[in-house]
């Protein structure tokens, strides 16, 4: 079977799964309420399309998207999926390639889920404010949403290979931090828990001010994903 067909099949399974659709619906509903609320009014009296407001919008969506990627990861390590892996490992397809395809499908599903609320925001900007300079905002969005997701994805993949319950502990941690709005200091702030604000009247873009941190998250996450793919497989 060609890798493309397997990828399409895996992606379709994820995109049609109940958990994915449910979380996507919740994320979209919340994003619409954010657009009608904090985005329209502008954070700290800045423009609705300011970096600050857009960062606040993306940061508010982060917990939902992180929960989504962890739930998708957890799906990969279900007993039934592991059983399927045992069968696949007996076929000619390299197991690492199969894992890579599955990771790709998860990444693809996540990107779609992340891009839909971003696109909704851009459509909102275009329709309501005739604002179309999306380039810098897109960069901000990517910096806020992607590195943390890649980092958590990497940890989840590594944990999932050993004990899938680890992913659920991670999931619980993300939910607890989000619900209780626990502020995580500086570079370790993986879920954008620090409130976005202005400093001395000057606009502050948290995503752009911590590019180093975001890059570290991204690189660390990528390394963890590669490590999880390269690790020898546990036999069932």
């Amino acid at each position: 079977m060609s890798k493309g067909i397997v990828f399409k099949y895996e992606a379709k399974r994820l995109l049609r799964s109940k958990e994915y659709l449910l979380l996507l619906a919740v994320t979209l509903t919340y994003s619409i309420s954010l657009l009608r609320g904090i985005v329209l009014y502008g954070v700290d009296y800045t423009a609705p399309f300011s970096g600050l407001t857009f960062s606040a919008y993306c940061s508010s969506l982060t917990p939902f998207l992180l929960v989504l990627i962890l739930v998708l990861c957890a799906r990969q390590f279900r007993t039934s999926e592991r059983g399927a892996e045992a069968i696949i490992s007996s076929t000619g397809t390299s197991f690492q390639i199969f894992r890579l395809i599955r990771c790709g499908a998860v990444a693809c599903a996540f990107l779609i889920a992340a891009l839909i609320p971003l696109a909704a925001c851009f459509v909102f900007y275009g329709l309501v404010f005739d604002y179309t300079e999306f380039g810098p905002l897109l960069l901000t969005g990517i910096l806020i949403l992607i590195p943390q997701a890649v980092f958590l994805f990497g940890i989840a993949m590594l944990l999932g290979k050993r004990k899938s319950v680890g992913i659920y502990i991670l999931l619980s941690a993300v939910i607890i931090i989000s619900i209780f709005q626990i502020q995580i200091p500086g570079l370790t702030d993986i879920i954008e828990s620090t409130p976005v604000r202005t400093f001395n009247g000057a606009e502050y873009n948290p995503a752009l001010s911590t590019v180093d941190g975001q890059l570290t998250f991204f690189l660390l996450g990528t390394s963890l994903i590669i490590a999880s793919l390269c690790q020898s497989e546990k036999r069932y």
């Binding site: 958990e19 449910l22 979380l23 929960v67 739930v71």
Partner: peptide, 11 residues
Amino acid sequence: ETTSVIMAGLI
């Protein structure tokens, strides 16, 4: 899994 997602969403 579905139940946990629903409950997390409701909370």
